[in-house]
């Protein structure tokens, strides 16, 4: 087989099986091949494009994203629920909302970081509290029948109905019973997804997280805005 094709296949196979290719890890030779051989580079890009996978380079490393609605390489909502350990849709969307809050703790926009080094569970809880504050305030005067499915009121109720911590003994255990536990569930998921690194209750963003935020959203902003505007 053509040597360049073989190398390109090797790179693609590492990437689609969830491996990291970095200048400093065991795949340094593949990284070198990707960056210095234009033939290999073109082949990798074209193969991944056919799989509907986007590739991003950040700080001497290669990272891939299946994007949205990628039926072969992406996750379905059901699979994400399983990974997260939640059952109800409103719990899933609350997890998404928590992830969104974590993103905004580190980034204002795809090109502007907040220079925050790490976040703790309590930071995320106050951020979610703040973003749902207005909805929660109105909940007192709202009839429960008015609450539509998949609305923010629904996740606000789920959030508001949880105590901050389940009990003193297992206050930092992941679970659906408390705000702390819920945020911990989300962080566990992000750690498993190689987006975050945990040390002594502090969560640091990994290069993969930064690469996705700065590159993916930069590239797809037009399309995402269109979806959000409902155009």
């Amino acid at each position: 087989m053509d040597r360049e094709l073989e190398k390109a296949l090797e790179i693609v196979s590492v990437l689609i099986t969830g491996g990291d290719i970095k200048k400093t890890n065991e795949h340094a030779a593949l990284y070198e091949e990707f960056t210095s051989n234009a033939g290999v580079y073109d082949m990798v890009i074209s193969m991944l494009k056919k799989f509907n996978i986007s590739l991003y380079e950040y700080k001497d490393g290669l990272y891939v994203s299946p994007g949205e609605n990628n039926k072969i390489f992406g996750y379905t909502n059901e699979e994400i629920k399983k990974e997260l350990g939640v059952r109800l849709n409103r719990e899933l969307y609350l997890c998404y909302f928590i992830i969104y809050n974590i993103i905004t703790k580190f980034y204002n926009s795809s090109g502007s970081s907040t220079f925050t080094e790490y976040v703790k569970i309590e930071d995320v809880i106050s951020s979610v509290d703040m973003n749902l504050k207005e909805i929660i305030m109105n909940l007192n005067v709202m009839s429960l029948d008015d609450i539509e499915q998949d609305s923010f009121k629904e996740i606000a109720i789920t959030w508001e109905d949880m105590p901050v911590a389940a009990s003193e003994e297992n206050s930092k255990r992941a679970g659906r019973g408390s705000k702390v536990g819920f945020v911990k569930l989300v962080f566990n998921f992000l750690v498993a997804q190689k987006l975050m690194l945990e040390s002594e209750g502090r969560y640091y963003p990994k290069d993969r997280f930064v690469a996705m935020i700065t590159e993916y959203f930069e590239q797809h902003k037009g399309r995402i805005y269109e979806i959000l505007k409902g155009e």
Binding site: S65, Y75, Y107, M212, K221
Partner: peptide, 30 residues
Amino acid sequence: EFDFKNALGMIMEKDDTTLLSHIVMPLLGI
């Protein structure tokens, strides 16, 4: 740039939590 705070405002205004998946899904790995 893609402004996360502004985008969250848009999602909340539409009051549709399913839109959050457009932001979260791409972050995930294979």
